[in-house]
Protein backbone atom coordinates (compact mmCIF):
# COMPACT_ATOMS: atom_id res chain seq x y z
CA UNK A 1 0.00 0.00 0.00
CA UNK A 2 2.72 2.38 0.97
CA UNK A 3 4.44 2.16 -2.39
CA UNK A 4 1.18 2.81 -4.22
CA UNK A 5 0.91 6.15 -2.50
CA UNK A 6 4.47 6.83 -3.47
CA UNK A 7 3.92 5.95 -7.13
CA UNK A 8 0.72 7.78 -7.95
CA UNK A 9 -0.68 9.67 -5.01
CA UNK A 10 -2.54 12.27 -7.05
CA UNK A 11 -4.35 9.86 -9.33
CA UNK A 12 -5.55 7.82 -6.43
CA UNK A 13 -6.66 10.83 -4.42
CA UNK A 14 -8.45 12.19 -7.45
CA UNK A 15 -10.28 8.90 -7.78
CA UNK A 16 -11.49 9.08 -4.16
CA UNK A 17 -12.65 12.66 -4.50
CA UNK A 18 -14.36 12.17 -7.86
CA UNK A 19 -16.17 9.02 -6.75
CA UNK A 20 -17.21 10.55 -3.45
CA UNK A 21 -18.39 13.75 -5.09
CA UNK A 22 -20.44 11.92 -7.70
CA UNK A 23 -22.08 9.77 -5.03
CA UNK A 24 -22.75 12.87 -2.93
CA UNK A 25 -24.54 14.54 -5.85
CA UNK A 26 -26.88 11.58 -6.09
CA UNK A 27 -27.50 11.51 -2.35
CA UNK A 28 -28.22 15.23 -2.41
CA UNK A 29 -30.70 14.86 -5.25
CA UNK A 30 -32.42 11.98 -3.45
CA UNK A 31 -33.00 14.20 -0.42
CA UNK A 32 -35.13 16.70 -2.35
CA UNK A 33 -38.28 14.50 -2.62
CA UNK A 34 -38.00 13.84 1.12
CA UNK A 35 -38.08 17.58 1.78
CA UNK A 36 -40.55 18.61 -0.90
CA UNK A 37 -43.16 16.10 0.28
CA UNK A 38 -43.75 18.36 3.29
CA UNK A 39 -44.67 21.35 1.12
CA UNK A 40 -48.39 21.99 0.45
CA UNK A 41 -49.65 19.21 -1.82
CA UNK A 42 -51.85 19.49 -4.90
CA UNK A 43 -55.09 19.15 -2.94
CA UNK A 44 -54.07 21.95 -0.59
CA UNK A 45 -52.97 24.22 -3.43
CA UNK A 46 -56.32 23.62 -5.15
CA UNK A 47 -57.96 25.35 -2.20
CA UNK A 48 -55.44 28.22 -2.15
CA UNK A 49 -57.93 30.59 -3.77
CA UNK A 50 -61.68 30.68 -3.24
CA UNK A 51 -64.52 32.51 -4.96
CA UNK A 52 -67.20 33.95 -2.75
CA UNK A 53 -70.65 35.39 -3.40
CA UNK A 54 -71.03 38.33 -1.02
CA UNK A 55 -74.30 39.67 -2.42
CA UNK A 56 -76.30 38.11 0.39
CA UNK A 57 -74.49 39.85 3.26
CA UNK A 58 -76.78 42.65 4.52
CA UNK A 59 -75.47 46.10 5.32
CA UNK A 60 -74.18 46.31 8.86
CA UNK A 61 -73.32 42.61 9.10
CA UNK A 62 -70.35 40.43 8.59
CA UNK A 63 -69.67 36.80 7.66
CA UNK A 64 -66.65 34.64 8.40
CA UNK A 65 -65.34 32.27 5.74
CA UNK A 66 -62.41 29.87 5.83
CA UNK A 67 -59.51 30.55 3.48
CA UNK A 68 -56.25 28.57 3.64
CA UNK A 69 -57.34 27.29 7.02
CA UNK A 70 -57.77 30.77 8.46
CA UNK A 71 -60.88 32.88 9.15
CA UNK A 72 -61.57 35.74 6.73
CA UNK A 73 -64.00 38.48 7.76
CA UNK A 74 -66.23 39.89 5.03
CA UNK A 75 -67.86 43.00 6.46
CA UNK A 76 -70.61 44.96 4.72
CA UNK A 77 -69.97 48.33 6.32
CA UNK A 78 -72.63 50.97 7.04
CA UNK A 79 -72.08 54.51 5.84
CA UNK A 80 -71.45 55.53 9.43
CA UNK A 81 -68.68 52.93 9.74
CA UNK A 82 -67.08 54.09 6.48
CA UNK A 83 -67.28 57.71 7.62
CA UNK A 84 -65.73 56.82 10.99
CA UNK A 85 -62.87 54.98 9.28
CA UNK A 86 -62.27 57.86 6.88
CA UNK A 87 -62.29 60.52 9.60
CA UNK A 88 -59.25 59.17 11.42
CA UNK A 89 -56.07 61.23 11.37
CA UNK A 90 -53.56 58.63 10.32
CA UNK A 91 -50.61 60.37 11.93
CA UNK A 92 -52.06 59.28 15.27
CA UNK A 93 -52.00 55.59 14.27
CA UNK A 94 -49.50 53.02 15.35
CA UNK A 95 -49.53 51.51 11.85
CA UNK A 96 -50.50 54.44 9.64
CA UNK A 97 -52.75 53.50 6.71
CA UNK A 98 -55.73 55.30 5.22
CA UNK A 99 -59.00 53.41 4.95
CA UNK A 100 -58.77 53.59 1.14
CA UNK A 101 -55.42 51.79 1.16
CA UNK A 102 -57.15 48.83 2.77
CA UNK A 103 -59.91 48.46 0.16
CA UNK A 104 -60.19 47.16 -3.41
CA UNK A 105 -61.82 48.58 -6.51
CA UNK A 106 -64.81 46.85 -8.07
CA UNK A 107 -65.09 45.80 -11.75
CA UNK A 108 -65.98 49.41 -12.65
CA UNK A 109 -62.69 50.69 -11.20
CA UNK A 110 -64.38 52.49 -8.32
CA UNK A 111 -63.35 51.73 -4.76
CA UNK A 112 -65.87 49.43 -3.07
CA UNK A 113 -65.96 51.46 0.13
CA UNK A 114 -68.67 49.37 1.79
CA UNK A 115 -66.72 46.07 1.62
CA UNK A 116 -64.01 45.41 4.16
CA UNK A 117 -62.18 42.07 3.76
CA UNK A 118 -59.77 41.06 6.54
CA UNK A 119 -57.82 38.03 7.69
CA UNK A 120 -59.49 37.46 11.06
CA UNK A 121 -56.34 36.88 13.04
CA UNK A 122 -55.06 39.30 15.65
CA UNK A 123 -51.58 40.47 14.72
CA UNK A 124 -50.50 40.12 18.32
CA UNK A 125 -50.48 36.37 18.99
CA UNK A 126 -52.93 34.85 16.52
CA UNK A 127 -56.31 34.84 18.32
CA UNK A 128 -59.54 35.54 16.43
CA UNK A 129 -60.92 39.02 17.30
CA UNK A 130 -64.63 39.60 17.97
CA UNK A 131 -66.52 41.81 15.51
CA UNK A 132 -68.59 44.86 16.55
CA UNK A 133 -66.84 44.91 19.91
CA UNK A 134 -64.45 47.35 21.54
CA UNK A 135 -64.23 51.08 21.77
CA UNK A 136 -64.37 51.76 18.01
CA UNK A 137 -67.09 49.19 17.19
CA UNK A 138 -64.59 47.50 14.96
CA UNK A 139 -62.88 44.46 16.47
CA UNK A 140 -61.76 43.46 19.92
CA UNK A 141 -59.35 40.66 20.64
CA UNK A 142 -60.36 38.82 23.82
CA UNK A 143 -56.90 37.34 24.41
CA UNK A 144 -54.92 40.48 25.27
CA UNK A 145 -57.33 43.34 24.65
CA UNK A 146 -56.21 44.70 21.27
CA UNK A 147 -58.79 47.08 19.83
CA UNK A 148 -59.27 47.66 16.09
CA UNK A 149 -61.44 50.22 14.31
CA UNK A 150 -63.95 49.80 11.49
CA UNK A 151 -61.11 49.60 9.00
CA UNK A 152 -59.38 46.87 11.01
CA UNK A 153 -56.58 49.21 12.08
CA UNK A 154 -54.93 48.76 15.45
CA UNK A 155 -55.96 51.53 17.87
CA UNK A 156 -55.21 50.21 21.33
CA UNK A 157 -53.56 47.24 22.96
CA UNK A 158 -50.46 45.16 22.32
CA UNK A 159 -50.96 44.21 18.65
CA UNK A 160 -48.18 45.74 16.51
CA UNK A 161 -49.94 46.10 13.13
CA UNK A 162 -53.34 46.45 11.51
CA UNK A 163 -55.39 43.36 10.69
CA UNK A 164 -54.06 41.89 7.45
CA UNK A 165 -55.96 42.42 4.21
CA UNK A 166 -55.79 39.22 2.15
CA UNK A 167 -55.08 39.41 -1.59
CA UNK A 168 -58.47 39.55 -3.29
CA UNK A 169 -60.26 41.06 -6.23
CA UNK A 170 -63.83 41.71 -7.37
CA UNK A 171 -64.83 39.24 -10.08
CA UNK A 172 -68.23 40.93 -10.36
CA UNK A 173 -70.23 43.39 -8.27
CA UNK A 174 -71.18 40.70 -5.78
CA UNK A 175 -68.42 38.13 -6.21
CA UNK A 176 -64.88 38.25 -4.87
CA UNK A 177 -61.93 35.93 -5.38
CA UNK A 178 -59.65 35.61 -2.37
CA UNK A 179 -56.10 34.36 -2.95
Amino acid sequence: MADIHAVEPTRRDFLYVATGAFAAIGAGAAVWPLIDQMNPDASVLALASIELDIGAVPVGQEITVKWRGKPVFVRHRTEAEVAAADAVDITELKDPQTDDQRLMAGPDGKLEKQWLILVGICTHLGCVPLAYKGEYDGYFCPCHGSVYDTSGRIRKGPAPTNLEVPPYQFVSDTKIKIG
Binding site: P33, D36, Q37, D41, A42, S43
Partner: peptide, 13 residues
Protein backbone atom coordinates in the same frame (compact mmCIF):
# COMPACT_ATOMS: atom_id res chain seq x y z
CA UNK B 1 -54.24 7.34 -3.15
CA UNK B 2 -53.76 10.87 -1.83
CA UNK B 3 -50.04 10.12 -1.48
CA UNK B 4 -49.93 8.71 -5.02
CA UNK B 5 -51.84 11.59 -6.62
CA UNK B 6 -51.40 14.78 -4.63
CA UNK B 7 -48.37 14.69 -2.32
CA UNK B 8 -45.22 16.12 -3.91
CA UNK B 9 -43.15 13.11 -5.06
CA UNK B 10 -45.58 10.93 -3.10
CA UNK B 11 -45.65 8.32 -5.86
CA UNK B 12 -41.84 7.94 -5.79
CA UNK B 13 -41.83 7.57 -2.03
Amino acid sequence: EHIMRDVNYGWVL
